[in-house]
Computed example of a mutant assay.
Amino acid sequence: MTDQFIYTTPLDPRATPLIEDLIHEYDSRYGDLFDREGAVVELNRYPPEAFAPPEGNFLLLLRDGETIGGGAFKRYDATTAEFKRIWTRRNLRRQGLARRLLAELEAQALRQGYARIYLTTGFRQPEATGLYLTSGYRALFDPDEDLAVRRKLPFEKVLGVGKEPVDLARAGPVSTSVPAA
């Protein structure tokens, strides 16, 4: 069993399982809060170019060629990347895949010159909240407030310093094999 990170685009056919499952996940957790179009509107809020180098990136985790996870980031400001769409296949959760995706996205954001990560998750995603809190992210909200009123829960993390940014505008696709957990 071989796991492999690849940097690609949301338009890559291998991204389809990620996008379809996110639509299902968001609709099942937040369907009563969305308008008629639901999660499809949320997932199409940003054009694919927002997740392209040099200001963003789109990551898939493949296992033996099959998509099992993914995530993306885009520019939030000059020093901050905003993480979006972090996902692992439902039947493979609780195996550390999301933590590996998060670490890889952080490393790539750092390589692209970002010093800080900003992200939000929904109030009906306690698993994501737990992941971020145990991965060094700081909650930018009061956990004692009514999270249902807030809806979006923002987090931040300051990344390491001293790494040279990589000019990915000139670099081709990246593929990195990693041992399966």
Rank of each mutant, 00 (worst) to 15 (best):
Q112P: 01
Y132P: 04
W87T: 05
Q108A: 09
G96Q: 14
I117F: 03
N91C: 03
P47A: 08
G65N: 13
I68M: 15
A72Q: 08
A128N: 13
F58E: 13
L102M: 15
R94Y: 01
L133S: 10
G160S: 14
T129H: 12
E145Q: 15
T120H: 07
G70Q: 09
L92G: 05
E127F: 03
E55D: 15
L102A: 11
G122L: 06
P154I: 00
W87F: 05
L131S: 03
I68A: 15
A139P: 14
T129Y: 06
L105Y: 03
E82T: 03
R99V: 02
F58W: 15
R94I: 00
T120W: 01
A78N: 11
S135P: 09
F83E: 06
F51N: 05
Y114M: 04
F141M: 05
R75S: 12
Q95A: 07
L119D: 02
P48E: 03
A139H: 10
V158D: 06
E104R: 11
V161W: 06
K74E: 11
P143W: 12
I117W: 04
L140N: 12
Y132G: 02
S135V: 04
F58P: 08
R90N: 07
K74N: 08
G70W: 06
R93P: 03
R111S: 13
E106Q: 14
T80S: 08
Y114I: 03
P47Q: 09
K152S: 13
T88F: 00
P53W: 02
L131V: 01
R45K: 11
Q112A: 04
Q95E: 13
G136K: 04
